[in-house]
Simulated scan of single mutants.
Amino acid sequence: MKHLIVLPAVLAVTACADSGANYQPILDGQPTVAFQSDLAACQSLARNQNQFDQETIGAAVLGAGAGAVLGEVDDEGDALGGAIVGALAGGAAGAVNANERREAIVIECLRGRGH
């Protein structure tokens, strides 16, 4: 039963994994002629930062380990349930962090190109 609850959460986290790279800034004024091509290039740069994905996996693994330990220590908890919850929490936090970092790359890249 726990696996049926966990699967939608895992799918939701992975569905958002690329949202930071798809950031669309709000401009104050008209975009320059080169803006769309620069935006596409900056989004591609942000999307290709694979180290963020590895950090998210690492956060999920650490969360699973911590959750398993806490679940085992808790009188009414279990290690598997704690590991699942910990992995979800760690993975979600890692995904949010990766998205924020990808969004920052898009913004700084566009600034560097004069936008």
Score class of each variant (00 low, 15 high):
M1C: 00
K2M: 07
K2L: 11
H3M: 08
L4R: 05
V6S: 03
L7K: 01
A9Y: 02
A9T: 05
A12E: 04
V13W: 02
V13N: 06
V13M: 15
T14R: 08
C16A: 15
C16F: 11
C16Y: 09
C16T: 09
A17S: 12
S19F: 08
S19K: 09
G20N: 06
A21N: 07
N22W: 04
N22C: 10
N22K: 15
Y23A: 14
Y23N: 08
I26G: 07
D28Q: 13
D28N: 14
D28F: 08
D28E: 13
G29P: 03
G29D: 06
Q30Y: 01
Q30A: 13
P31R: 07
P31F: 05
T32C: 02
T32S: 13
V33F: 04
A34M: 07
Q36N: 12
D38P: 00
A40E: 11
A40M: 09
A40W: 00
A40V: 08
A41D: 12
C42R: 08
Q43K: 13
S44E: 14
S44D: 14
L45S: 13
R47E: 12
Q49A: 11
Q49W: 02
N50I: 03
N50C: 01
Q51Y: 05
F52I: 03
F52M: 05
T56S: 11
I57E: 02
G58S: 10
A59I: 01
A60Q: 05
A60C: 06
G63Y: 08
G63R: 10
G63D: 10
A64E: 00
A64M: 07
A64P: 02
G65V: 11
A66N: 02
A66D: 01
G67S: 04
V69C: 09
V69D: 04
V69N: 05
L70N: 03
E72V: 03
E72Q: 15
V73L: 15
V73R: 15
D74S: 14
E76G: 15
E76V: 04
G77E: 03
G77M: 02
G77A: 05
D78Y: 01
D78T: 04
G82N: 08
A83T: 00
A83H: 02
A83R: 00
V85F: 10
G86Y: 03
G86F: 06
G86V: 06
A87G: 14
A87W: 05
A87D: 06
A87Q: 07
A87K: 05
L88M: 09
L88P: 01
A89W: 04
A92V: 13
A93H: 03
A93R: 07
G94L: 05
G94Y: 04
A95K: 09
N97P: 04
N97F: 10
N97D: 13
N97R: 12
A98L: 03
N99A: 14
E100M: 12
R101S: 15
R101P: 00
R101W: 01
R102C: 06
E103S: 12
A104M: 10
A104P: 03
A104R: 12
I105P: 00
I105W: 00
I105T: 14
V106E: 10
I107G: 04
E108H: 11
C109A: 11
L110M: 15
L110S: 12
L110P: 06
R111F: 11
G112W: 09
G112R: 09
R113H: 14
R113I: 07
R113K: 15
R113L: 15
G114H: 10
H115V: 13
